[in-house]
Design a protein around this nucleic acid. Structure first.
Lengths: 162, 162
DNA sequence: GCCAATAGGGATATTCTATGTCCTTAATAG
DNA sequence: CTATTAAGGACATAGAATATCCCTATTGGC
């Protein structure tokens, strides 16, 4: 059970977009080059962000992506769900219905107890991701990344932002 | 990103095994029939439980599986990890290393900030599963399941337990 | 108006995992 | 001795993840 690598890509891309000056856009090409990713496939992840309304896009040269909200208004969960989907990790196939002792036509009400517990764990996972904002990530990165690298990366991005 | 259906199977099987009288065993065949599952494939899940030390097995007619510990000493996490594995859902491919601004040979220390956050969410998921015991499940099921069905299921299992 | 670059998205190929089946081996109860 | 079991290896199938390619409409700069 692994998350798509696109989730990782989307998070890194959002971190970059968070540093973009207001009103400017960064293209898939630039994001792919910066992260060493296949441009066409990364594009699918970015389309996911776009369809979820997390980013705005514009066409043409100088076109690309920018965040649709402030980094403090974007959670990890928003980004993860935009790419990975909102479905739960535990799928209940209701195998209790196969119990040979079950009276014919009998139907238990409500979801299986096992599913309820597994779904609570899924919700704990989501709740954790919901509690972390993109702005928190940027703050952490600004401490983690050496000042020189941070600065040169910012300039690299600005050079390519339309 | 879905858990294997084997996880669901293993949890249901453990719930049944929890009701088995001390010293008796229940076969794959009986567990598969009770849940309407393919016997050979369910066997793989049960082998996972066995390898993790959660159940004991014995061979021959009257052979099968029984819990290796009391239901209060078995957590959902134990069972889930025995079947699904212990790996995290988020795989960090360290794409920050592709940053074109990076000095040659430069190597950031420690895991990426994004990975750390995603791993915290994974840990929240595990922590929730760790907090639920098999005995909790049995207690819930005993309330959920109509008394008649509970009783007849128990007898069905006892008939087949070696 | 024209050209180049862009996002969007459909079609297709490839690889990997999950799912499921089949068969052999060793152990065990009756 | 026989029937039944768990363990596990080999193999087949289905579906998802991971790409790649191509076409379309839009847009900015000339």
């Amino acid at each position: 059970m692994n998350l798509k690598s696109q989730v990782e890509w989307a998070l890194h891309c959002c971190a970059i977009l968070a540093g973009l000056p207001e009103g400017r856009y960064l293209s898939t090409k630039a994001l792919a080059e910066f992260h060493g990713l296949p441009k066409e496939y990364l594009s699918k992840a970015l389309q996911g962000l776009s369809q979820a309304g997390l980013v705005n896009t514009t066409l043409g040269p100088t076109g690309g992506y920018r965040l649709a909200r402030m980094p403090a208004e974007l959670t990890f969960l928003d980004i993860v769900e935009a790419v990975e989907g909102k479905s739960r990790t535990f799928i209940c196939n209701d195998i209790r219905a196969n119990n040979p002792c079950r009276p014919a036509g009998f139907c238990e009400e409500g979801p299986c107890a096992i599913a309820r517990i597994m779904w609570e764990a899924d919700e704990a996972w989501r709740e954790k991701l919901r509690s972390v904002k993109l702005s928190d990530l940027v703050e952490t990165l600004s401490k983690d990344i050496p000042r020189d690298l941070w600065k040169s990366s910012f300039e690299w991005v600005l050079d390519r932002a339309g």
